[in-house]
Simulated assay, not measured.
Amino acid sequence: MMKIAFSTCPNDTFVFYAWVHRLIPGAPPPAVAYADIDITNSLVAGENGPDIAKISFAALPWALPRYALLPCGGALGRGCGPLLLAANKAGSPDHPAGLAGRRVAVPSERSTAYLLFRLWAARHVPGGVGEIVVLPFHAIMPAVRDGLVDAGLVIHEARFTYHTYGLNMLVDLGNWWEADTGLPIPLGAIVAKRDLDLTAIAGWLRASVQYAWRHPAEPMPYIMRHAQEMSPEVAQAHINLYVNRFTEHIGEEGYRAAAALLGRAAQAGLVPEADLSALRQAVNI
């Protein structure tokens, strides 16, 4: 039995569907813990974390002592970055400088979204933002709408639904990153404990991705059971955006994106220094 932790987001349940349902020859049966990204980011920093986990690339500096980055199963891409939102009403910030001193909700302080926000805000918010409030990602848009926070940093399917909450986009941080670096956005990573057979795990994971691509309708009942009242159309749009060529293999461009993010963040004092050469774990798939 192999302990695996990942979120209920459609891209994660799509990626792991075949493995969870024992459809990958040779793959051990998984004991799955479904957990928000803020929780999985914390789990891999401790002594007794899962064997395999989906985490933010931003959490890698805390994970690398015990875990290796796998070259498949993750979420990288273009046009899929986090958005910074505010309410469409009087008194809400309507431009970047208006965030100075404001309360901003984020999905995790060890998320790629948060790192991008901090790197962007250092250049665009004179005096800096005020209080940072960590909320589960599905609670952020209601909090912005209801005035509990002044702005919110959202990820995943929120880019398709934020209009329904009466919110405006202040900035697409993915577009900012791509324009600034020319690189894709490294959002979610799959890591496995270093003392396991990493090549075998990577092979099973890639096989699970490929199975779901060959049979795209088959995983949908499983995906929708975990999709938190999301419509099938939004779930499919989510999968189409976040499951792509980088999911099958991160590739040279993906490794450079991860190193660029963590290098900049370490230089800004936002994450610990890490051996970025350790990202390129020798896994033959």
Results as ranks from 00 to 15, higher is better:
residue 100 A to Q: 15
residue 101 G to F: 07
residue 101 G to W: 10
residue 105 A to M: 03
residue 105 A to S: 13
residue 106 V to N: 00
residue 106 V to K: 02
residue 107 P to E: 12
residue 107 P to Y: 11
residue 109 E to T: 15
residue 109 E to R: 15
residue 110 R to W: 11
residue 110 R to L: 12
residue 110 R to H: 15
residue 110 R to Q: 15
residue 112 T to V: 11
residue 112 T to I: 13
residue 112 T to M: 11
residue 113 A to N: 12
residue 113 A to R: 12
residue 113 A to Y: 08
residue 115 L to W: 11
residue 115 L to V: 09
residue 115 L to M: 09
residue 115 L to H: 12
residue 116 L to C: 08
residue 117 F to I: 09
residue 118 R to H: 05
residue 121 A to T: 08
residue 122 A to L: 13
residue 122 A to Y: 08
residue 123 R to I: 03
residue 123 R to T: 06
residue 125 V to R: 05
residue 128 G to K: 08
residue 131 E to G: 01
residue 132 I to Y: 04
residue 132 I to A: 07
residue 132 I to T: 15
residue 133 V to G: 04
residue 133 V to L: 10
residue 136 P to A: 13
residue 136 P to C: 12
residue 137 F to I: 08
residue 138 H to Y: 10
residue 139 A to C: 09
residue 140 I to Q: 07
residue 140 I to R: 03
residue 140 I to M: 09
residue 142 P to E: 05
residue 142 P to N: 10
residue 143 A to M: 03
residue 144 V to M: 01
residue 144 V to C: 04
residue 145 R to Q: 15
residue 146 D to L: 11
residue 146 D to A: 11
residue 146 D to K: 08
residue 147 G to M: 04
residue 147 G to H: 04
residue 147 G to L: 01
residue 148 L to G: 02
residue 149 V to Q: 06
residue 149 V to H: 05
residue 149 V to K: 05
residue 150 D to N: 13
residue 151 A to M: 10
residue 152 G to A: 00
residue 152 G to S: 06
residue 152 G to V: 02
residue 154 V to Q: 00
residue 155 I to A: 14
residue 156 H to K: 02
residue 157 E to A: 14
residue 157 E to Q: 07
residue 157 E to R: 13
residue 157 E to K: 05
residue 158 A to D: 14
residue 159 R to C: 02
residue 159 R to L: 05
residue 159 R to P: 00
residue 160 F to K: 07
residue 161 T to H: 02
residue 163 H to G: 11
residue 164 T to V: 12
residue 164 T to E: 14
residue 166 G to R: 06
residue 168 N to T: 14
residue 170 L to T: 10
residue 170 L to S: 01
